[in-house]
Design a protein around this nucleic acid. Structure first.
Lengths: 126, 126
DNA sequence: TGACATTCTTTACAAGTGTAAAGTAGTCTT
DNA sequence: AAGACTACTTTACACTTGTAAAGAATGTCA
């Protein structure tokens, strides 16, 4: 059980985000947190979370009758995996074209550009 | 049929990459091109491609007995969709953290950094 | 014209995903 | 102790995805 290098599905992303922010957290709380955003019923959330435990994405600890869920992978790990997937699939592994694409997409503000410039400069001087 | 704003699966990415590079292209050719990489049989490739037609990702044109496939979305559209998905899922829509993550992650070379810097500067002056 | 070869079509099937209803069990309140 | 809450468990079901075998149709060469 639980070979990690799993990919997260969309539903799993929604859930694990909440877990990262609130862990250790019981399923009902996660359901409430996602109510608005997704409109999932308790059953749905609980089912998803239990599947995630089986996959090794979350772990549980039982306190009396309450199950508390905790993430089993870090946000960084998950982000990294996700980005690499996109990089491989859509850009055939080439990082610069992907960055370029991001820059060119119109969703970037002037101040974000400044920030990035600073980041690059910092990176270069290292 | 064929509302577009579909996401591509992994198999679909593999196929459409070949289509972009060789279109208009018949299924057997795509199968040969992917033989090495994926080891898919003709049936598999053909099934996938026909599903993609149904989804509006590819179109076909029949010449006598040969079906030629052509992409119905551009590489840019697909890349954009893919990146936005990652951005939304994994970075809650925040572009700078994602770029930062990319910068900090792997082996960006010095010259790539230069390139990016230039891109940013160009973008800013626009 | 019959035998190959090539390509297309039909059908299938298991695993994974999104979604949840219904039933059960334990806890709290009066 | 009965009823009401709350949380957990079981079961289900349709749709998508990866994978392909088997059969049908068409074209080609001897």
């Amino acid at each position: 059980m639980s070979q990690r290098t799993q990919e997260l599905t969309d539903a799993e992303w929604a859930i694990i985000q909440m877990v990262w922010e609130h862990e250790p957290v019981p399923a009902p709380t996660v359901q409430e947190l996602l109510e608005e955003q997704r409109g999932w019923s308790y059953s749905t959330v609980k089912t998803l979370m239990d599947r995630m435990v089986k996959k090794g994405l979350l772990t549980t600890e039982r306190i009396r009758n309450l199950m508390l869920y905790t993430s089993a992978i870090t946000r960084q790990e998950a982000q990294s995996k996700e980005i690499l997937k996109t990089l491989k699939r859509a850009f055939e592994g080439a990082l610069t074209p992907m960055m370029q694409f991001l820059l060119e997409s119109d969703h970037i503000t002037h101040s974000e550009l400044d920030e990035l410039e600073a980041l690059i400069r910092a990176k270069k001087s290292k």
